[in-house]
Simulated assay, not measured.
Amino acid sequence: MLFVDNNGITNPRLNLALEEYLLRQVDEEQPILLFYVNEPSVIIGRNQNTIEEIDPDYVNAHGIHVVRRLSGGGAVYHDPGNLNFSFITRGKDDLHNFARFTGPVIDGLRAMGVPAELRGRSDIFVDGRKISGNAQYATPTRMFSHGTLLFDTDIAEMLRAINPRRLAIESKAVHSVRNVVANIRELLPGDMTINDLKAALLRSIFDDGPVPTLGLGVEDWQRVAAIAHERYDQWAWNYGRSPRFNVQKSARLPAGKIDTRIEVDGGLIQEIKIYGDFSGREDIAGLEAMLAGVPYDRERLTAALGEVDLNRYFGQMDGVTFIDLLY
């Protein structure tokens, strides 16, 4: 096995791009091990509806990254108290064999005095509390199995970031399962830092011997940056890839009661219908047509309505109030 040092990068877009680069473009016979720690982020499962998994106002206000990953499963929260691991291997015979990849991590935790165990298909628990979730992804020739390790994560912040607003959303997307969780730090017999945890796991995985590394050069990092830009920096991947869903919101405003029904597919508003007892000079159908095709995103909705006099449609309406109603 070869270890890849990510040079202390904490940008989730770059770390996910590095993992994808090692999967797709590094044809190495030996398994590869990658550790990384991210800035506060919500990492969305491949098949999830992003809007359904987060509070967009909260994550935007607090600078929390929202990035979709390649693997399936539920949304997870990353912060400087969360250590992520990834095993990248040739072939895909071990796809769905989570025991093979969680085993070395569990052994390392037990050596530290933490009685970890694999439960269900892909989670690591300690005394009935979840400390790690795992997921996998495969290409025709290679695969990775990656997971989180809650070491000293801000649990309260995690719950705020991945607790969606109470919207009437219907979707075929996969829903995240909320579990009772624990931080490894509180379970250790003695204190350590997240870097100590990483070092201890490396010692365990490599049997206290030297850690063979796979060095990356300037060209490798340029390719990683290109993957980050082409995929993980893109709204179309992080939000637009969400499954088709419907949003229904209503409010009693100075203009009257307003009820909106929005159908979103591919991140774009396919159809919007606005009902209510408001009264304006213009037919509301004109505003509905104007919003069709606009990305379902606060900034893009704001830009699309920037020059529109909403009073013509509602009698009394300001842009911020209307955006709050839509999003």
Score class of each variant (00 low, 15 high):
Asp107Leu: 14
Pro104Gln: 11
Lys92Gln: 15
Arg100Pro: 09
Thr89Gln: 11
Arg69Gly: 04
Asp57Gln: 15
Arg69Ser: 06
Gly74Met: 10
Ala61Gln: 14
Asp94Val: 00
Gln48Cys: 03
Ala99Ile: 09
Asp93Arg: 12
Ser71His: 10
Pro104Tyr: 06
Tyr58Ser: 08
His62Leu: 08
Thr89Trp: 05
Val66Phe: 00
Leu95Val: 05
Gly91His: 12
His96Pro: 09
Leu70Asn: 11
His78Val: 08
Asp107Trp: 09
Arg69Lys: 09
Ala75Gly: 09
Ala61Glu: 14
Asp55Arg: 01
Arg68Ile: 00
Arg90Trp: 09
Glu52Pro: 00
Asp93Thr: 05
Thr102Ala: 02
Gly72Asn: 08
Ile51His: 04
Thr102Ser: 06
Gly72Leu: 05
Ile51Gln: 04
Pro104Val: 08
Ile106Arg: 13
Gly72Ser: 08
Thr50Pro: 02
Ile106Phe: 11
Val67Asp: 00
Lys92Pro: 07
Arg90Ile: 12
Thr102Arg: 01
Arg68Trp: 00
Ile51Ser: 04
Leu95Glu: 11
Ile106His: 12
Asp107Gly: 15
Val66Gln: 00
Ile54Asp: 01
His62Lys: 14
Ile64Gln: 07
Leu83Gly: 12
Asn84Ser: 07
Asp79Tyr: 07
Ser71Trp: 05
Val67Cys: 03
Tyr58Met: 09
Asn49Thr: 13
Asp93Val: 05
Ile106Ser: 11
Asp57Met: 14
Arg90Asp: 15
Thr50Asn: 07
Asp93Asn: 13
Ile88Phe: 05
Phe101Tyr: 15
Asp107His: 15
Gly72Ile: 07
Arg69Leu: 06
Tyr58Asp: 03
Arg69Cys: 06
Leu95Thr: 04
Asp57Tyr: 15
Arg100Thr: 10
Val59Tyr: 00
Tyr58Lys: 10
Gly103Val: 06
Val105Ser: 10
Tyr77Gln: 03
Ile106Leu: 13
Tyr77Ser: 03
Arg100Cys: 04
Asp57Leu: 15
Val76Glu: 02
Gly73Phe: 01
Gly63Cys: 02
Arg100Tyr: 09
Pro104Gly: 10
Gly63Thr: 02
His78Asn: 07
Asp55Met: 01
Asp79Pro: 13
Arg68Ala: 00
Ile106Asn: 13
Asp94Tyr: 07
His62Glu: 07
Leu95Arg: 08
Val105Thr: 12
Val59Phe: 03
Gly103Cys: 12
Phe101Asp: 09
Thr102Asp: 00
Asn97Ser: 13
Glu53Gly: 13
Pro56Ile: 06
Asp107Arg: 15
Tyr77Gly: 03
Ile54Trp: 01
Gln48Phe: 00
Tyr77Lys: 03
Val67Asn: 03
Ile51Lys: 01
Asp107Asn: 15
Gly73Glu: 01
Ile64Cys: 10
Ile88Ser: 01
Asn84Ala: 02
Asn82Phe: 02
Ile64Asn: 05
Asn49Ala: 08
Phe101Arg: 11
Asp94Lys: 07
Asp79Ser: 13
Asp107Lys: 15
Gln48Val: 01
Arg100Phe: 05
Arg100Val: 05
Thr50Leu: 02
Leu70Met: 14
Arg69Val: 08
Asp79Trp: 04
Gly81Ser: 05
Gly72Val: 06
Asp94Gln: 09
Ser86Lys: 04
His78Cys: 03
Phe87Lys: 05
Arg90Met: 14
Leu70Thr: 13
Leu95Pro: 01
Pro80Thr: 13
Asp79Leu: 11
His78Trp: 03
His62Tyr: 10
Asn84Met: 03
Ile106Lys: 12
His96Ala: 14
Ser86Asn: 07
Gly74His: 11
Gln48Asp: 04
Ile64Arg: 10
Val105Leu: 12
